[in-house]
Amino acid sequence: MSIAIDACAAQHQGDRKEQQDRVAILPHARRKGVALAVVADGMGGHTGGALAAEQVVHTAKTNLDHFIGTDESPQHMLQNSMQEAHTMIKASRFMNEMDPHSTAVMLLLQPGRVTWGHCGDSRLYHFRGKQLVRRTIDHSYVEHLIATGKITPAEALNHPNRNVLLASLGGQEDPKITLDEVSELVAGDSFVLCSDGLWAYFDDLELGTLIADNSARQACEILIDKARQRGKGGGDNLSLAIIKLIDALPPKKPAPPPGFVPRPRG
């Protein structure tokens, strides 16, 4: 049976004064079955973070529109999108006297192939059913401490420096961009892109279960509601995009015209 796509993007301002996240699911203008999902979490004071995140989405859309797939690899397209966004955000600080930065996580969907890249601590999760297959590793101080064995994942949840990033788009240093891909896709696979305002409130099993048991739209609504409750009035901006691969229903046979009587065989 062929595979269909169930997708939804959503966000909430949380308890912040401004929405500095940006999220989008962008279909390719000319290539059927090709789409790009993007989540960007902007930082940099009033309006600066929002402008940085907006630049990430704008640059990604421009690169998607020019992506043919024959002379450029998906990894190269994603790498270029983030590198170009970094350059544009960095340049904007001289014009706007701000210090804008943004995380980025992008997923390029093509028939039989999903490629993604990220910079910062906005995440991508790949589930098969309810089980986590893999997730991106944050470019953050606490993930560095976990990797070097200095703290445990449980200790990282409440570490005082858990929001310190080691990489972002728009910073003084060249961004660290990590790429990955999966080409063996099955119905039941799902991909979640989200900012830390959402993933901070869920463990892998709960996140996978809620997505497996609901449509993409319903899962977005439930996850936002739960994150808002758990934020207890101190919640960050939160954004997510969910892409679920599901069994495509066979096309319905056209109904016979009124008064049609089938002829007996023989």
Rank of each mutant, 00 (worst) to 15 (best):
S2W: 10
I5T: 08
A10V: 05
E18Y: 09
D21K: 02
L26F: 07
R30C: 09
R30H: 14
R31T: 07
L36F: 03
D41A: 04
M43I: 09
H46C: 07
T47K: 15
A53P: 15
A60I: 04
H66K: 14
G69W: 11
P74K: 08
H76F: 12
H76N: 14
M82A: 02
A85W: 14
A91N: 07
H101Q: 09
S102Q: 03
A104K: 04
V105Q: 00
Y125A: 01
V133I: 10
R135K: 15
R135S: 04
I137T: 14
E143L: 09
G149C: 04
P153V: 08
E155A: 10
N158V: 06
P160S: 02
N161A: 10
N163M: 04
A167R: 08
S168T: 13
G170N: 09
E173H: 14
K176R: 13
I177W: 06
V182S: 12
A187H: 10
G188A: 04
V192Y: 01
C194I: 02
S195R: 02
D196Q: 10
A200N: 15
F202H: 04
E206R: 01
I211M: 08
I224Q: 00
Q229P: 12
R230D: 08
L238C: 14
L249I: 10
A255F: 05
A255K: 15
P262R: 13
